[in-house]
Simulated assay, not measured.
Amino acid sequence: MKQSLAVTNIVYAVGLTIWQVVQAYRPTPKIRLSVMGLVVLQIGTVLMAALDGLSLLQGWRPQEMAVHLAYLAASLLVLPIMTFIGLAGRKEPNYFVLAIGSAAVVVIVVRLLVTGGA
Rank of each mutant, 00 (worst) to 15 (best):
L77E: 08
R26N: 10
G116T: 03
V22G: 00
V107P: 00
G44S: 08
V107M: 08
G89C: 09
R61C: 02
L77W: 12
L57M: 13
I81K: 06
P80D: 02
N94G: 02
G116Q: 06
V109F: 12
D52N: 04
L76T: 13
V67T: 14
L47H: 08
F96H: 12
L76R: 14
V110M: 14
L98H: 04
A74Q: 15
V114T: 08
F84V: 14
I100T: 06
V110H: 05
V107D: 02
L54W: 11
D52L: 00
S55D: 14
P29R: 05
S102N: 04
Q58L: 05
A50W: 13
S102K: 02
M82V: 09
V109R: 01
L41A: 15
V105M: 11
P27S: 07
H68C: 10
S34F: 08
E92D: 07
N94V: 00
R111S: 13
L113Y: 03
I85N: 00
S34R: 04
A74S: 14
V39D: 15
L33W: 12
A74H: 13
P93I: 05
V46T: 12
L47K: 10
V114H: 10
T115L: 10
V67K: 06
I108Q: 01
V46H: 00
K30G: 09
F84D: 06
Y95G: 04
G37Q: 08
G44R: 02
